[in-house]
């Protein structure tokens, strides 16, 4: 691994990987990016644990205990943490369950529904427990920058990344701010 490169880690919590897809949509700018950065944990590298990094990009809301742990590991290891996309910024689609009681949800899915009539609510310690509500990531750790959008456009992600890589305070200009 070469010296002086900026280390970036990414993760998707309760997200759909759409924001990661949008990152890949920077197209030919990927070549420029790969010249300047080195990826740590990300679904692209298949590294499972995040080491010390310059920038962490988080997609998705915080929906369960594992999300909290991943997010905290990112916060511990990344100098700069960026919330990428509507779910990380607002809770997003997964947070649409927030008006429902999580206990009733588990009951409905595993006990009431006919397809699982002899089922039970899974209790394997390997499974992450769901939180009673889905939260945006800034409610769990301190977040430095936000890129809204579902997903944010490749241009918006590139603007923030290139600003950060160049050591500038990232600034999303109008037209790059989009909530949907």
């Amino acid at each position: 691994m070469s010296e002086g490169r900026i280390r970036i880690a990414t993760a998707s919590l309760a997200g759909c990987f759409g924001c990661h897809m949008s990152l890949l949509d920077i197209d030919e700018r990927l070549f420029e990016l790969i010249e300047r950065v080195e990826f740590d944990r990300t679904p692209l590298t298949d590294i499972k644990h995040c080491g010390p990094c310059d920038i962490g990009l988080i997609e998705g809301g915080v929906c369960n205990a594992e999300n909290v742990e991943v997010l905290r590991a990112f916060r511990r290891n990344c100098k700069i943490l960026v919330a990428v996309g509507a779910c990380a910024v607002t809770g997003g689609l997964p947070a649409q369950r927030n008006h429902l009681d999580i206990g009733a949800c588990l009951q409905e899915v595993y006990l009431t529904e006919p397809s699982l009539s002899n089922g039970q609510i899974p209790n394997d310690p390997e499974l992450p427990l769901p939180l009673d509500k889905v939260h945006p990531i800034h409610e769990v750790v301190k977040v430095d920058y936000f890129i809204p959008g579902c997903p944010p456009s490749a241009d918006a992600i590139w603007k923030v990344l290139s600003d950060l890589i160049a050591g500038r305070t990232p600034r999303l200009t109008q037209g790059l701010i989009q909530y949907d």
Partner: peptide, 18 residues
């Protein structure tokens, strides 16, 4: 954190018995 993380798992603990 803005909310009590452990308390936010209480409901799921109760229903899974974990």
């Amino acid at each position: 954190p803005a909310f009590d993380l452990d308390a936010a798992l209480a409901r799921a603990r109760a229903f899974t018995g974990r």
